[in-house]
Amino acid sequence: MSAPPRIPLWPAFRAIAARELLRFVHQRERFLAALVRPLVWLLVFAAGFRAALGLSIIPPYQTYITYETYIVPGLCGMILLFNGMQSSLSLVYDREMGSMRLLLTAPLPRWYLLFSKLCGATFIGILQCYAFLVIAVLFGIDHPPLGYVTILPALVLAGLMLGSLGLALSSFIKQLENFAGVMNFVIFPMFFLSSALYPLWKMQESSELLYWICRLNPFTHAVELIRFALHVDFSPWALLWTLVATAVFTLFALWGYDPARGLIRRKS
């Protein structure tokens, strides 16, 4: 029996990524929701927290900054985090509808199929982040002009990390109804136990335990990578831990979608 014909890699990548983009375009409320969440924090909560949370001069900042300036990188991380979870939600839906099984039976490496979907979701998250940064500028919250260029690699890596986390979670979620609970136990702890809304030294003043939880949180390092890049600076430590977390989450996703252990075994 002859081997099944192999699909060229680039057309397959383009088709899977385009499917993600088309799904996003047809769900306009998803784009609005992705911007409303960070804007509420930026324009409403920041006004109340500005007086309560004093900020010292910490890297990468060279002078005192407003609280709104501080939380912009964290809110970009929030966009990528929610987008990664939203993309994984679509995977659970596709699995229930049967289209995921059809995709994974294509004569292509499974890791390549997942990588293509991950890249499509990451691209959407980056578009949302830049739209948010433009709105922040309109409200007078600007950053170094070069920072809007240097932030791109950080957004790509952070998006891949959080997207791979979503892939890993989706491989272990059996039903769409269970996804909301998983999101609540993943998104909110990752977001609030990080440096997205307040510097870690403020957390250390209140609790040493919570401080170390925040330090070990991979989302913290993704946010710091974005923060340094937005101010045309570089954090080797944040880059290292973000790369390590991306690799770990990707391995979990590949393990979860392994036919011998993950999707196919659960559905048989």
Rank of each mutant, 00 (worst) to 15 (best):
G125P: 09
G125R: 05
I126V: 14
C129T: 13
Y130W: 15
Y130D: 10
A131I: 11
V134W: 09
I135M: 02
V137E: 10
G140W: 11
G140K: 09
L146Q: 12
L146T: 15
G147T: 15
G147A: 11
G147F: 15
V149M: 08
V149P: 07
T150A: 12
I151D: 04
L152Y: 15
P153M: 09
A154N: 12
L155G: 02
L157C: 08
L157R: 13
L160C: 12
L160W: 14
L160I: 15
L160F: 15
M161S: 00
M161N: 01
L162H: 06
L162Q: 07
L162A: 07
L165R: 07
L165M: 09
L165I: 08
L167Q: 03
L167F: 04
A168P: 06
S170H: 15
S171N: 06
F172N: 05
F172E: 09
F172V: 12
K174G: 02
Q175P: 02
L176S: 12
E177F: 14
F179W: 13
F179A: 09
A180F: 14
G181P: 13
G181H: 15
V182C: 14
N184Q: 13
N184D: 08
V186Y: 04
V186H: 04
I187M: 14
F188K: 05
P189F: 04
P189S: 06
P189Q: 05
M190D: 00
M190K: 00
M190G: 00
M190Q: 01
M190L: 06
F191G: 00
F192N: 00
L193I: 12
L193Q: 02
S194G: 00
S195W: 11
S195A: 13
A196G: 05
L197D: 01
L200K: 02
W201E: 08
E205C: 05
S206F: 14
S206P: 04
S207L: 06
E208A: 15
E208D: 11
L209K: 09
L210P: 01
L210T: 06
L210R: 10
W212I: 06
W212Y: 14
I213S: 01
I213L: 08
C214K: 06
C214T: 12
C214W: 05
R215E: 08
L216S: 06
L216I: 10
N217A: 05
P218F: 01
F219N: 03
F219I: 10
F219Q: 05
T220D: 00
H221F: 03
A222W: 04
V223N: 02
E224A: 03
L225C: 05
I226Q: 08
I226N: 01
R227W: 00
R227F: 00
F228Q: 07
L230H: 08
